[in-house]
Simulated scan of single mutants.
Amino acid sequence: MPELQTLPAEILRPDPATFEQGDFIWPKKPGVLVPYSTSYITEMKLVPTDFYDEPTWVAEKKLYLERQASDPASQLSATDRTRLAELSFAEFAAEYAGIESVDVEDLGTDTKIEEFALGTIVYVGHVGIIEIEGGKPFVIEAISGKGVIRHSYADWLSSRPGEEVWHGRIKNLSGEQRAKVAVEAKKYLGRPYEFFNFDLNDDSGFYCSKLVWLAAFRSLNIAIDGNSDSKRRFWFSPKQLMNSEKVQVLFSPGSYTNH
């Protein structure tokens, strides 16, 4: 396996010639912190599909809980529904992004995640799956407002101007085995984006890192985070995927959380 590369700041992206089918890529705008405010995001002109604002999150949570409460076959217990109902946006952001407390120095304030106000937006991270066709890389990903889509890596990069990119792959498997992840993910093209779904093996809707988990689980019988129970009490995040013992990061511009 190649050694981890931490390259100079001016080199922000991996060489696509190193990509193999079934690899993973994580994008992020350089220099941003998690979390940050609405004004900071506007100034940085960041891609909106990789961010969550509090009003949207609260509204989606409300609809999800209503559906679960009226469904006799609900995947959530009454206890879990209560826990989710009481979960604040700040608590969600801290756990999902892997941050407990962050000083947002770039905002000229000591605001911490526990002090978020209504309207706060956080970067929740993103991950895509590499497919190789005709020697060229493509990206399969689940995007808010678009669902599961596939486009060339060149087009993917052009939609994310100036962003840094991390590159990784599942450890200790052959290229033929890893390729199955992309083949499986491609089966779900056109499926809707659905963030509030806590069953990682439910293919009715996806968020980005759920697509990775399900594709690996169904194609390789591997729980990429080490937990084969697909029914969760919390989301599986891109950062969790990156930090998994089963994943090797091959290219890193720096810390994914606050670089």
Rank of each mutant, 00 (worst) to 15 (best):
R81S: 11
V34C: 04
E133G: 14
V247Y: 07
A93R: 10
A142Y: 02
E163A: 11
A216Q: 07
P2A: 07
V32T: 12
S152I: 04
Q240T: 02
E100Y: 11
L214Y: 10
N243D: 13
F206Y: 12
H151Q: 15
Q5V: 15
A17H: 10
P137R: 04
S244L: 02
V139C: 04
L200K: 01
A154H: 09
M44H: 11
A90E: 01
V148Y: 00
A179T: 04
G175L: 13
R83P: 14
S230R: 02
P27H: 03
L12H: 14
S244H: 01
G135C: 05
F236G: 08
K146W: 04
G168W: 00
E60C: 08
P253C: 00
W57L: 02
E194M: 14
A223Y: 10
R218Y: 03
G135R: 05
S209D: 02
L76F: 09
P55A: 00
E20L: 13
V139I: 14
I129N: 00
E91L: 14
G108Q: 01
R232C: 05
L87A: 13
A59I: 04
K62S: 11
A9D: 07
R13N: 09
T42D: 14
A215W: 07
E20F: 08
S174A: 02
A69S: 10
F92E: 03
F198R: 06
N197K: 12
S152G: 10
I222M: 14
T120I: 08
E91W: 13
G168M: 08
S237T: 05
L220N: 00
D203T: 06
T56C: 00
E66S: 06
Q240M: 13
P8A: 05
L65P: 01
D110R: 12
I41H: 12
I99T: 09
Y188D: 09
F138S: 02
D199L: 05
R232A: 10
F51A: 04
G119A: 04
P253S: 06
P192E: 02
A117L: 09
